[in-house]
Design a protein around this nucleic acid. Structure first.
Lengths: 348, 348
DNA sequence: CTGAAAGCGCTAACAT
DNA sequence: ATGTTAGCGCTTTCAG
């Protein structure tokens, strides 16, 4: 459906927005005076200031940030590279980071890498061209050493979700092992001792930390793990469905599952949702509607907002103190029991 | 947990990234030659070009976009204002828009307005300061006339999700009324004639279009609507739960519901999920896991990716032809039956 | 094929 | 309190 009307903007050739000079001319002062008013640099009589402000309003003057940035050397921006803004975890990080950045008069520019290493580099470089005051990245590539020059030039970098490699930078990570430990101990408390683990591929940093948490917790509690009940691979509904059927058909089947990330939790749920007696389940990462599925899904929730805020905090601190030691901050996870993790062995 | 190591970046004072001049000096050519190589402006001997490229690599030169933009007048960017990137609908729009923009060598800068009118204006103005080649906005404020100057200056504006007011601009909207019509007719086909409607507050454009679709469809099919079974208000779990209990306790209760947006669908589901015989339900907007709830939720799905892509297309077309008539494009919705909408009256 | 000069719009430093 | 001058890093003429 197409509604036809007149063209936009009255049809003039792009005259461009007015400049500081246009405003000055309009008022009859030097363009520097306008600059002073616009920037609140004091040293302007209240009267002139008033007239300038009026002219600014009338002409619709908006300061050209490119020019300003070029002259000042800083842009007041932070570049944020995430896996995908359409991933709720990263979306929450973006919103929280933008919010916190506002408090420091910084604007956040977000880009999605879609987990492609070459795009990470491409986008980080493109962002560097815009001379952000800082760079927050979700490392994917083998190494981030290509950022050394950027770092040396005085633009701090903060890694989130996974540590950077090949460069020494601050990082904000989740307490992956601790989260899984909580999940396992929760299941143990509810009488489970045969627990299966479905994790993402071991190339992925968080996947390694999480399964390590699983193994060590199992060891601490003297659980006899069977390697065939630990699965590490890219999420794939089909594969996971098959695997679960096999596990559950075994003579001494697992009574509980821990899933290592959201996509895997979803895949497992799709397979189990219509089972009359599903195994207990605790998923890593909370998700909307976890409380609407039956049984409601217990999860280890991350705190994406804290990750986003902390990343900005680290960046700002480093801008203030470039020499301070590099830090890695772990954001705690939180176990949210909703029922699926409480299914006891007897209930099966 | 804090790991302490050495500072970042070798501890030098910010020397800034190398400039075109540094590269030129390093190679022993004029800085203009470097500019030519960097921009692929031909007219450079293959040998010089090679040496320049090597120096660029060695020094880690990245073009300063602020300087470039200042001189060229265009930035190669599009500013995108959405309600919130953490809203899955808008997140999908963002990703699709960024993808499509890449094809035109445009970078998209996203900001969230969080549905606050004053922030819409504030952010749109801040974005204008960065001189984007185009502006895509999700209108919230009463009027967008404050953008007239931006428009006149040659920066096109496209409205998404809701039309802009006070300015004549292109728009990409969903077929709201059509989507609800499909929902209602789907329910009619399954034997429902007593249908309740839960919509968002009537101040909201999409809410008005959707309830209008409900009313007109009901009329076409000769359904006798009862006004007390049409509810329009900001989503509120408590209110909706109470309302539903009342509706269902009535002597001749509704057998089916249409919910006008995602938040309302969620609220209704929370109330109905544990009912043995819930009413049929069709929600406006698809959501992840709609297939995991039992019964799986039938929805009218929007196509956010199409909205994002179309917005960029309109922008690019207008950049090419500033005088073309203003257009409003409606993106079709799609009914996805999953079970909740098929519950027949007899099944209750 | 390459270079020199000018200037985009702004702010910092220095006058007045 | 206001104005002048210079220059940020780059691209666009215009010459060589």
């Amino acid at each position: 459906m197409v509604v036809t009307t007149t063209g936009q903007g009255g049809g003039r050739r792009p005259p461009g927005l007015p400049t500081i000079k246009d405003v000055a001319e309009h008022v009859g002062v030097s363009f520097k005076t306008v600059s002073r008013v616009v920037n609140g640099d004091g040293k302007v009589s209240a009267q002139t200031a008033q007239r300038v402000r009026q002219a600014v309003e009338e002409l619709g003057y908006v300061r050209n940030e490119s020019a300003r940035q070029l002259r000042r050397g800083r842009t007041g921006t932070v570049a944020l590279l995430v896996r995908a803004v359409s991933d709720p975890f990263f979306a929450a990080i973006c919103d929280a980071a933008a919010e916190r950045a506002r408090d420091h008069d910084l604007a956040v520019f977000v880009t999605s890498t879609h987990d492609r290493a070459e795009r990470e580099r491409e986008l980080a470089t493109a962002m560097a061209g815009r001379r952000p005051d800082g760079l927050v990245i979700t490392p994917i590539a083998e190494s981030q050493d290509y950022l050394q020059g950027v770092l040396d030039s005085g633009i701090p970098v903060v890694a989130i979700d996974r540590p950077a490699r090949g460069i020494q930078v601050d990082a904000v990570l989740a307490d992956n092992a601790g989260g899984v430990r909580d999940a396992v101990e929760h299941l143990l408390r509810h009488g489970h001792s045969r627990i299966g683990y479905l994790g993402d591929a071991p190339e992925i940093f968080t996947a390694r930390e999480r399964v390590a948490g699983f193994r060590s917790t199992a060891e601490v509690h003297g659980l006899g793990l069977r390697e065939e009940e630990i699965d590490l691979a890219r999420p794939d509904d089909e594969r996971i469905a098959t695997l679960l059927r096999r596990w559950r058909a075994a003579p001494d089947p697992v009574t509980a599952l821990v899933t290592g990330n959201n996509a895997i939790t979803m895949a497992a749920l799709r397979e189990l949702v219509d089972e009359p007696h599903p195994p207990a389940l605790v998923g890593f990462d909370d998700f909307e509607l976890a409380d609407l599925v039956r049984p409601a899904v217990s999860v280890v929730a991350q705190d994406p907002a804290a990750v986003g805020r902390t990343a900005i905090d680290l960046l700002v601190e480093r801008l203030r103190q470039p020499e301070r030691p590099v830090r890695t901050i772990r954001v705690q996870t939180r176990l949210i029991p909703r029922g699926s993790g409480e299914l006891t062995v007897g209930q099966r």
